Amino acid sequence: MTLVMFTTVRLVPRLLARFGVKPVLLTGMTLIAAGTGWLWRLGTGDGYLAGLLGPLLLLGLGVGLSFMPLNATILSAVEPGEAGAASGLLQTLQWLGGTVGLSVLVTVYGTATRYATGDPARILVHGASRAFGFGSLIALAAPAVAASVLTGGRTGTAR
């Protein structure tokens, strides 16, 4: 996942020049939702190749396509004198969102495993798939919001 993400980030400037911010960002966000949706289907009989490799590649590609254009879009509307403060606020909110999101997903996992029965592997996978399922529903909101907020054009400015 990390290798795909770093490789994708190196290609993003060329993709942005060719297609613009909105299509690249929406594609990345959709791939994140698809990757977590695929992990929702995780089962105890799935091996690494069948159950994890594909979704992790999608997640790496999606994150690589999303984060750089998202940061550039948000910071493009800021005056140069305010760029430091805006960048700090952006990073703070990203970390806060990740922290709250992880807390919610751990709660979903804990709730799903609390009443599950069977062997420990089945309980673990049951909780993880439920958490990924909930995460995919959250991830589906991102392209919907981005599609409604971003205007067309190469800069991908927000309304």
Rank of each mutant, 00 (worst) to 15 (best):
R122E: 13
V4C: 13
V149A: 15
L16S: 01
R14G: 06
A147C: 13
T117G: 14
A142Y: 02
M5H: 11
V12F: 03
D119S: 07
G84I: 14
L52I: 12
L42P: 00
D46P: 03
A142I: 09
A139N: 04
V63D: 03
G118A: 10
I74S: 03
A50F: 00
P120C: 01
G62K: 01
G153W: 00
P23N: 13
T44H: 06
A83H: 12
L70F: 10
T2Q: 15
R154N: 07
A86Y: 00
T111D: 10
G51V: 11
L42C: 01
L57C: 13
L61Q: 03
T2I: 14
R130K: 09
G88S: 08
G35P: 10
G98P: 02
G156T: 06
L150C: 10
T36I: 04
A86T: 01
A147S: 12
G101Q: 03
L137D: 02
A139T: 04
L140I: 14
L89V: 11
F132D: 11
S148R: 14
G88W: 01
V145S: 05
G97E: 14
S129A: 06
Y109E: 10
Y109G: 05
G156V: 13
T2H: 12
A116E: 07
G133L: 07
S103Y: 06
L70W: 02
